[in-house]
Computed example of a mutant assay.
Amino acid sequence: MNIERLKTAFANYKESSLFGRYIHLEHIEPLLKSLSDTIEVTVIGRSENNAPIYMTRLGNGKKKLLYWSQMHGNESTTTKAVFDFINTLIAADNEISSTVLENCSLYIIPILNPDGAKAYTRLNYNSVDLNRDAQDLTQKESVVLKKVIDELQPDFAFNLHGQRTIFSAGETNASAIVSFLSAAGDQERSISPSRKIAMEVIAEMNTILQQCIPDSVGRYDDGFNINCTGDTMEFRGIPTVLFEAGHYPTDYDREKTRALIYYSLISSALYLASNTVTGDQFEAYFTIPENEKCFYDIIIREVLLEGEIVDIGVQYEEKLIENEVKFIPKVAEIGNLEKKFGHREIFGKKRAIRYYNDVVEIVREVVLPKITLDFEIFSLELSKS
């Protein structure tokens, strides 16, 4: 798939009503109502706080593809991309739509955790991480997803997430803008036939993304945890790709990352629709560097604090305040951060600082205008690490 064609498609079919980080049912229900005239939209269950969980169905092909987004309520980038993807598929004027829908049936749950999405939290209404509930099934949302999987028996699954700004693609100064994982199905992390299929699809997406974000695609850790949904899927032999929408430099609204997720959704669906994927091409998956935690949002380098030259790592904490996601800067580490990188870096030139006011003023110098930073609750615990 040519990257220029994907860029054109995204420009044509991007869902303009969805923007930024705070996406919940009130944003997508009007879209689903409109789509119901064209595609199948059903309520497949209710959340712990009785919010509807929707699923859309497109296509009539033999290959069954299952997608779910916002299992973690504050990971909304993939949900935006899902609606861009749907808009592309329902358009009758493009080769992408005809190829995918003739060969695949797509089942898409745009928000699995509507209560968490509304509260802008990773957890659900009962403060449970749904991605650690695949075995115990203590939550209604987990039961809903398992029922869909049991009844559908998908040929391929896409588990759509977002990740923090801390991740790098390897131990490098390259943000992991998009990361993928073929989850393990056992403690030995065996390379099973279903994992090979997922790995081959990931390798195809990586080939596409390298054309626009070279060296900024990461491979997420595949440590086994049977309580995780992807691990359970692989244990059952269902090829499953986990997406992690990460940080594109300066893009805290994750609109550029959204486009990259869209490219990945389109290219993977086309690949599955156009090929008998056997997993024979799985080895390219291992050329993708593993994610490392090498980034802070800001590093203030070489300042004098209490008689010692140190670096200060500042991390933003996202909080929903009056229906707006605000980024609260917090000092995360003080010391020698030579092996860490900042998405923004300030060189302090050994300037002496005096706790709160000085650090606030330094951070103010580099924040982006579009980021809402709440300095009134800037946490500054400046004890050395």
Rank of each mutant, 00 (worst) to 15 (best):
R46C: 05
L31F: 06
S34A: 01
E29L: 12
L65Q: 13
I53W: 01
M55P: 01
N60S: 07
H24P: 08
E40V: 15
E29K: 12
A51T: 07
L32M: 06
N60F: 14
T78V: 02
V43S: 04
E40A: 10
L31D: 06
A51D: 06
E29P: 00
T42I: 08
V41N: 05
L32P: 02
K62G: 09
L65M: 12
K62W: 07
F83R: 14
L35Q: 05
N74G: 02
E48H: 07
W68M: 01
L58V: 07
I44T: 13
F85P: 08
T77Y: 10
T78A: 09
E26K: 10
L66A: 02
E48T: 09
I39C: 09
I28V: 15
S69C: 03
D37I: 02
D84K: 00
S69I: 07
P30D: 00
A81I: 05
T79W: 03
I44W: 01
M71P: 00
G73R: 06
S34P: 04
P52G: 08
T77K: 10
S34F: 05
K64V: 11
S34W: 00
D84P: 02
A51M: 12
N49D: 14
N60M: 04
I28A: 14
R57G: 02
K64M: 12
S76R: 08
L66H: 01
D37V: 03
M55A: 13
H72E: 09
E40W: 13
R46S: 10
I44Q: 13
F85V: 08
L35A: 05
K64P: 00
